[in-house]
Nucleic acid binder design. Structure first.
Length: 692
DNA sequence: TGGCAGTGTCATCAT
DNA sequence: ATATGATGACACTGC
């Protein structure tokens, strides 16, 4: 049954891949949420269910799924494994807070200013102004102090962030007002990011937002295994800034037009909060429709201050018109946390351009927040080698790993068996075992056949002993051995062309007598034919020692040998020529062998590089596919969330004027499009400068 | 018969 | 200065 299920699942995956290849987008997670670890773990984090270790078969295991090295699903195996690693890396991009808050800050043309309220806290809508009938009153006003806040602020017409600067921490007083919106967001998120088995995230048992907010209620009571990736504030295992930088780097890599993180972060940090608190007025009542709580702050005559606030991080901030900073305040922290936090994707909320398309049939047309961000051309700019370096990708290791499994590369994976791929050590080994032998003319060849080797004669004959390759085998065989191999007959060359005919014929039998030779004569004739020109010369000149000694003896012994005989000048000259030619012959052989080895090594290097290149290309395709899917999900989510936002009049926000952005404190804010664009451009410049 | 690969040899340079 | 190694160039041979 299990195997049948697995078979079915894999079939679905393959079918999905096929659909995706022909352009049909299929949300695999929806159907395979329990069998696709990569995306699942984006949301849930690494689960022990997917990390079972089979130490005895670790190599062929994909998180519990045993895969045979010869499985036809190896491609999927690698793809899934690679995606899994990517997704796990994405786990760093957690939502640092478990709430989404939106603040709307706009200039108050009426000039209502309240700069003397340093501790007025957060911008709170008047409860009476809330028109979200779905929010229970008891939840809306459960915090009397904050109710007072709201009233006071309403009177003052001022809005101010909390003293501690963490807007979200002040939000629990008004989060209830957004209960429905968050629930709906949860549903939207779940629809967009199917999480699979909900049993791991029982909504009824999940903690409330208050419980998981460390600033409010201390450590989460939720088991670490469930909400550890969702913890906020001090419980975040990773530095928020680091997360953001990671996200930005990813965006940068993907060519996404991102907005300045630091700018957003600085905007809503404590300093910014104080400034806002001190200078900005609160809009009287901000009716919230469509389940979204809009904390509206009016900019009275404090435009300059406001600008100065942003000027530190955002150049040329344009606050003309209504600058809006929306913060979505969650009420149902349980649902939202488990959903939004676990997706780890909310950080991709900042919208780049309003050039997208809208999938929704209801509500205003929303831009594609990620449109144009992941164009193939942009992704082409990805330096794969840089990526490999940054990610610790070892091309050699990867190539070898791939060689272990990749059976369809069309390349010989077992290079060690290739005669052209002998390692230097192997070559050395083989060559050392293949002793050099002397031909009858005394030259040292590259004969792997040791039958004719005379070790004693080999003294001093130490030359380059290269590997015994198929290319050199014939060339360096002992000619006497090769005579019996018809296809190697040509190897037995006797380059005596320089020899004077008279000299050559001196002791050779006449061809006319060949037919009548005895076996002994034939052998003598054969040996005679093997004699080189110098050997014939030496015989003609009656040199009293063999050419082999002439050539291979060390110079001292050679001179000693010469001194033992009374040799004429012609004999001495011939002997020296024989020695010189013999050594040069060996040197030429060595030289050619080296040349061959060099060529073969280069050939092997080219093959390796081609293999690496193809591997990187395959990885690139996988990355592009994965990124495209993620982009689509984020885009959908963005549009869903944005489409739910309503201003004080219950009208949807224009995507041409506003954009959602992810703040450094984890909040998702609604900011003017112009501001988002400026931040995006600024961030772009920063990244360019960083590259330089 | 021309092309080609293998080989030997020479000239030259480097060590 | 000599011996030797390395290598390009050339010639030759056999296929």
């Amino acid at each position: 049954m299990l195997s049948l299920k697995k078979y079915f699942t894999e079939g679905l995956i393959q079918f999905t891949i096929l659909l995706s290849l022909i352009g049909v987008r299929v949300d695999v997670d929806t159907y395979l949420n329990s069998h696709l670890p990569p995306l699942r773990e984006i949301f849930l984090g690494q689960s022990s269910a997917y990390t079972q270790t089979q130490f005895h078969n670790l190599r062929n295991t994909l998180d519990g799924y045993v895969i045979h090295p010869k499985s036809v699903d190896l491609d999927y195996y690698f793809t899934a494994r690679r995606l899994l690693n990517q997704v796990r890396a994405l786990d760093r991009f957690q939502v640092p807070t478990t709430e989404v808050s939106a603040w709307l800050v706009h200039r108050d043309s009426e000039g209502s200013v309240s700069g003397a309220q340093p501790n007025t806290g957060i911008a709170l809508e008047n409860g009476s102004g809330l028109q979200d009938g779905t929010v229970p009153d008891n939840e809306v006003r459960e915090n009397g102090a904050e109710q007072g806040f709201g009233e006071e602020l309403e009177d003052l017409g001022a809005v101010a962030p909390p003293v501690n600067g963490d807007l979200t921490k002040e939000v629990p007083g008004v989060e209830d007002q957004t209960a429905l919106s968050l629930e709906e967001c949860l549903r939207l998120l779940e629809a967009t990011f199917p999480f699979g088995e909900n049993s791991e995230f029982p909504a009824a048992d999940a903690p409330s937002l208050t419980e998981v907010l460390p600033s409010e209620s201390g450590p989460s009571t939720v088991p670490d295994g469930l909400l550890s990736p969702l913890l906020t504030g001090t419980e975040l295992p990773f530095d928020l800034e680091q997360q953001w930088q990671d996200l930005m780097s990813i965006m940068e890599t993907q060519g996404m037009e991102v907005n300045s993180t630091a700018a957003a972060g600085t905007l809503y940090d404590s300093t910014g909060g104080d400034i806002l608190n001190a200078n900005y007025s609160l809009a009287p009542s901000t009716p919230i429709n469509q389940n979204v709580s809009l904390h509206q702050a009016s900019l009275g005559s404090c435009t300059q201050d406001f600008a100065s606030l942003f000027s530190s991080e955002m150049e040329s901030l344009s606050v003309a018109g209504s600058s809006a900073l929306l913060q979505l305040v969650p009420d149902n922290s349980t649902g939202f946390n488990t959903t939004f936090g676990s997706t780890n994707l909310s950080g991709i909320f900042f919208p780049p351009q309003l050039n997208g398309t809208v999938n929704e049939t209801s509500g205003p047309e929303l831009p594609d927040p990620l449109g144009g961000l992941l164009d193939e051309a942009m992704l082409d700019e990805i330096s794969l080698m840089d990526l490999a370096t940054e990610e610790g990708f070892n091309p050699v290791q990867a190539s070898r790993l791939e060689e272990e499994f990749d059976s369809d590369s069309g390349l010989s994976l077992d290079s060690s068996h290739s005669p052209a791929s002998l390692s230097s050590s192997e070559a050395s080994s083989s060559s050392s075992s293949a002793s050099s032998s002397f031909s009858e003319e005394g030259a040292v060849g590259y004969n792997s056949d040791s039958e004719n080797v005379d070790v004693e004669d080999a003294e001093g004959a130490v030359g380059y002993q290269p590997e015994y390759s198929k290319f050199c085998r014939m060339s360096y065989q002992n000619p006497s051995q090769l005579q019996y191999l018809p296809y190697l007959e040509h190897v037995g060359h006797n380059h005596t062309y320089n020899m004077a005919p008279r000299t050559l014929d001196t002791d050779e039998p006449q061809p006319a007598t060949m037919g009548k030779k005895s076996a002994k004569d034939k052998q003598a004739d054969f040996l005679d034919k093997q004699m080189s020109r110098d050997e014939h010369r030496a015989r003609a000149m009656k040199i009293p020692f063999p050419n082999e000694k002439i050539i291979n003896l060390p110079v001292e012994e050679f001179n000693e040998l010469l001194s033992k005989y009374q040799l004429s000048e012609a004999q001495l000259s011939l002997i020296r020529d024989i020695r010189r030619r013999g050594k040069n012959k060996m040197a030429a052989q060595n030289c050619r062998k080296r040349k061959l080895d060099t060529i073969l090594n280069l050939e092997r290097d080219v093959e390796d590089l081609q293999r690496d290149k193809s591997k990187l290309l395959r990885e690139k395709v996988e990355f592009l596919r994965s990124i495209r899917q993620m982009k689509q999900k984020v885009q959908n989510l963005y549009q869903e969330v944005f489409g739910r936002l309503r201003d004080e009049n219950g009208q949807p926000y224009s995507p041409n004027q506003y954009a959602l952005q992810y703040a450094s404190n984890g909040s998702v804010i609604l900011i003017p499009r112009s501001l988002a664009d400026q931040q995006g451009r600024r961030q772009e410049r920063k990244q360019k400068d960083r590259r330089k």
